[in-house]
Design a protein around this nucleic acid. Structure first.
Lengths: 193, 193
DNA sequence: GTCTATATGAAGATAGAC
DNA sequence: GTCTATCTTCATATAGAC
């Protein structure tokens, strides 16, 4: 149906606008008016598509999770070795360097904001990390024991989050580059069975 | 003067209550009413001591910076070697493990929240990091070249922030312990001149 | 200096016209 | 389905009595 398709388009416009605002302003400072302005959808009409702000967040998380899943599948298909795939992961912040400098990590900063006092929304937000975490474990499993794979996957997430946070604190993209190089060295130096 | 002393006491009560709320709820969700309830100071009276919410934040940051500076001075006086002092720093999250699990790092989470869209408040909040950063550089300077000292100081901050963020995301204190042990190994393995 | 009462504004959410 | 107008709530901040 054409009308249903149109509704879907509107929904997607809203989600994409909210996705950016969430990254650039954070959840608590993102208002429906902001979304209306950014998406071009009239203020009141938003509430037809999403009754509450929580529902908007939920839709954005689903959207992000799907997009990231697709990306990881693509890497799985097109990057030959696990080590190279891990390096590809570690490179994400370099590709997003200007955004990281200005806004931090979109997943980490959202979790940090919601984790304090909005536990339901935090659980939603954590799903973003689960996607990467499970994929990283699979990659490391091709290189080390299952036990070590879990540990290394978390360690990689720790270092990525840390560099994003500190790059943001000090507005310093050279720090980001240096820390990613350190991660590369670490990945290459592991004694894989 | 007794009355002036009393005013100071009230100010300090407000600051300490706001310090906790800022950590537990974040800046944007912390209201004057929250501070009034937590400190026992009547709602309206707060605005005599602090005209705006920004002023409260500023006072809390000053308070934190002073407290942390005292702590670092104490370490400097009472812990004999630079390596031991660095390990003492790395141990902070272990001592605060329950808080980190529930609320993340008080400095990192505040910077992340304010950094997106409140640049003036972000500058204030970054002062917390400056205290540690400068102290860490001094410690590393006793062990490596000046250039390396800056790099290592930031690297230590990166790893500390990363472990705090991920411990918070997954509510997982065993991750925190494991990552601090890794930092210990790293500190001990450096080839110092 | 302390506190009450209130002004003011902005947000999320809803009712109902088209 | 779309959108306007509005209700309600809650925040910061202020005016002014005590």
């Amino acid at each position: 149906m054409a009308s249903r398709e149109k509704t879907e388009n509107i929904r997607n416009k809203i989600i994409e606008a909210a996705d950016n605002l969430l990254y650039h302003k954070g959840y608590n400072l993102m208002s429906f008016s902001d979304i209306a302005d950014a998406s071009g959808i009239p203020r009141g009409n938003l509430n037809y598509h999403f009754k509450t702000k929580d529902e908007v967040l939920s839709a954005v998380i689903d959207y992000r999770v799907e997009k990231m899943g697709d990306m990881l599948q693509d890497w799985q298909a097109n990057i030959p070795t696990a080590l190279e795939r891990l390096k590809r992961f570690a490179k994400i912040p370099v590709n997003e360097i200007e955004n990281v400098r200005r806004y931090g990590c979109p997943m980490g900063s959202l979790n940090t904001e919601l984790g304090k006092v909005q536990p339901d929304l935090k659980s939603l937000s954590r799903m973003q990390f689960d996607v990467f975490r499970e994929w990283l474990i699979e990659q490391f499993k091709m290189l080390v024991s299952d036990q070590k794979a879990k540990e290394f996957a978390m360690h990689l997430l720790v270092r990525t989050q840390g560099l994003a946070t500190m790059t943001h604190v000090y507005n310093d993209s050279s720090l980001l580059v240096r820390e990613v190089e350190k991660i590369y060295s670490w990945l290459e130096s592991q004694e894989y069975e």
